[in-house]
Simulated assay, not measured.
Amino acid sequence: MVVGLAVATLVATATPASATEYSSALKIQGVQYNAPGSDDNRCVGGNTSQEYLTIKNYSKTATVNLRGYLVKDAVGNSFKFTADHHLQPGDYVRLRGGNGNDSDGNNVVYRDNCNFIWNNTGDSIYLYKPSGAGADSHSYKPARDDADGNGYVTFH
Rank of each mutant, 00 (worst) to 15 (best):
V109W: 02
V3S: 15
A133Q: 14
N34D: 07
A25W: 01
A135G: 08
I125R: 11
T61C: 06
C114V: 13
T61M: 09
S137E: 12
M1L: 11
V2F: 13
Q32L: 10
D102I: 06
H138I: 10
G30P: 06
D136E: 08
A83Y: 02
H138K: 12
Q32H: 08
F155Y: 12
S38L: 09
A8M: 10
A8Y: 04
L53P: 01
H86G: 02
Y58E: 01
G46E: 12
F81H: 00
G90D: 03
N34R: 06
T82I: 05
C114P: 12
S78K: 15
N99S: 15
G134Y: 08
D112A: 15
N106Q: 12
D39T: 08
Y140K: 00
Y33T: 04
A19M: 08
N65A: 08
A19I: 07
A6P: 00
N101C: 05
I117Q: 14
N77V: 06
L95V: 06
H138A: 11
G98F: 05
S137P: 03
D73C: 09
I28C: 13
N119D: 15
K141V: 00
D40G: 10
A19T: 07
I28E: 09
N115G: 14
G149S: 05
N34F: 00
N41Y: 08
L26R: 11
D148Y: 09
S124E: 15
C43F: 12
N115P: 02
C43M: 13
H86F: 11
A14Q: 10
A135K: 07
A62T: 05
Q88P: 00
V153A: 05
Q32G: 07
S131P: 06
Y22Q: 09
P89F: 04
V153S: 03
L95F: 02
Y58D: 00
K72R: 12
V64G: 05
K129L: 13
D104Q: 14
D91P: 01
P16F: 15
